[in-house]
Design a protein around this nucleic acid. Structure first.
Lengths: 292, 292
DNA sequence: ATCGGGTGATCGCAGTTCGTTATCGGTCCA
DNA sequence: TGGACCGATAACGAACTGCGATCACCCGAT
């Protein structure tokens, strides 16, 4: 069995097919023509010696062997891209590179304090921060696309391959235009709300659903948005109010403030998450920079 | 900064240049012409945005940034090659793949017992075994080319990034043709010996040197060979005797036997070694299959 | 039954990449 | 001052990788 003619491109395309759930869809996602994808995946399968996808009649499937290969390939591709990216950002030779995902809900002074501690201990190390939803974070932790995640700790967010450690808890408050000085549970009943769409804010929305029903609330949601910036913009425009963890008050735009609601104080816990499968000394040091 | 045009080839060539200590030497090692190497490394440097090698006047050097990149690149390349290799060997979809390096001196029933335990616990996992010298093993552990090593534990074999755990100790004996029944310290003074070359058997030879001088021996070495098979062949041919750990008696060819030397019993310890930097659950499970 | 709309595979062709040989300019050492 | 070494460059052929056009197939809706 000679040396492989497989390259990074083969991994990338094959993964894209698996993710997109089809060759044509993968080609679209990759912005190339479909035959190129077909050809590359065929070459990969020939080289490996077994089919990765079953594409007879109707829907297509991933073989067992293919699934194993894809798991490895994802990790490899992530490692590769990180190698390039870390070096490009950092032509001066810093040691180490960590990619962190965090929920918009998790921005807070605790995070920057931990980053400060870590930077003092490892001055040369690059830390790359990316905002993403809790669900995306779990997926990316498993594929190695991110090393550490700060996410909303929630019963529905658990995975055997991912370890979690709670970092802090905070109360949820109401985000209102700066002019407003007080809120009450009764006010909330009559108010309109702007919220993140469930696709992107699943855990948070689920958590709020529970908190609402416990208080006997069923707030009317008049607007949903994908990004937190858009939500805040709508609130500033007077379209409605929204809920946000009080610990993230610093990241509010100047036109808004956050108020606790008397007699209603749902809690939210932010946890640090990391893969149990891939771990390094550097990541360990990073985690230890964040006290529980 | 657009998407990289760097591929696995770029990593491979760049690493080869660093390892070979020059472009021409790398080209030879890769079995391609030198300009191809020059071009590829240049492309890599352009893409990354900084020089990896300094090749002005006379000797060439690796830049600091280049060293960082190379460290990452080695790990990435190892991950890539493992992904391909593991899938190729195993078209039926076993889960997991471990690459083990072991010294020829370490072949013994302890190793196979541990492998048996591990295979029972992880039936689907491929374990790939490669013979290599202790020094090579240390290098390969750091680059991720092997996951676990069984090596000759020796004071000169230590590295901050590599953890070690002694697995067993054994006495060193003399390998002789099957016809011989007894040996003595005096016999050794007058005998000729066949040994492994120091390049490949550095730790073992160092250990023997000490044991010789303690017994007041200075055996005449009439022949040196690279591989243990060749050494044994020479012994079987009657060229001379050699020393070998008694625990590895099973791996002797039928024409030879191993005898302890009365009043001279140097010990040798085999340790399991692994990288502290890259670790996984599977490797942990593997290690735990080998009792101390 | 047959016609669109979907899948992925195949074919032939172009641009790019990759490797080759030949050659150049440089340093080092005899 | 040659000669042996190094790495960079140039020109060219082969291979790779992309493209559009097309094919064969399955499906569901006329």
């Amino acid at each position: 069995m000679g040396p492989t003619r497989i390259g990074i491109r083969h991994l990338r395309y094959t993964i894209a097919v698996a993710d997109a759930g089809g060759f044509r869809a993968a080609a679209d996602a990759l912005n190339i023509a479909q035959p190129a994808v077909s050809k590359t995946v065929q070459d990969t399968e020939t080289d490996l010696g077994f089919p990765i996808f079953l594409r007879s009649a109707g829907m297509f499937e991933i073989t067992d062997a293919g699934r194993v290969f894809l798991d490895d390939a994802r990790l490899t591709l992530a490692a590769f891209e990180r190698t390039i990216r870390a070096s490009r950002q950092n032509a001066i030779g810093a040691r180490g590179h960590i990619i962190v995902g965090y929920s918009a809900l998790a921005s807070s002074s605790q995070i920057s304090a931990g980053l400060d501690i870590f930077h003092k201990r490892h001055p040369g190390c690059q830390v790359e921060m990316h905002v993403m939803s809790t669900d995306t974070m779990m997926r990316n932790l498993k594929t190695g696309e991110i090393d550490i995640g700060f996410l909303l700790s929630h019963g529905s967010v658990h995975d055997l391959e991912v370890a979690q450690k709670p970092i802090w808890s905070t109360q949820i408050g109401v985000v209102v235009p700066r002019a407003i000085d007080t809120v009450s549970l009764d006010m909330l009943r009559d108010s309109a709300f702007v919220m993140g769409v469930r696709e992107n804010w699943r855990s948070y929305r689920t958590l709020l659903d529970v908190a609402f029903s416990q208080a006997g609330l069923s707030p009317s949601i008049i607007d949903e948005a994908w990004d937190v910036q858009v939500i805040f913009q709508r609130v500033a425009d007077g379209r409605g109010l929204t809920f946000y963890p009080i610990s993230a008050a610093d990241s509010l735009p100047a036109a808004l403030k956050i108020l606790p609601v008397p007699d209603w104080s749902p809690e939210l816990t932010i946890a640090m998450a990391w893969s149990k499968v891939v771990d390094t000394k550097l990541l360990q040091a990073f985690r230890e920079s964040f006290p529980t």
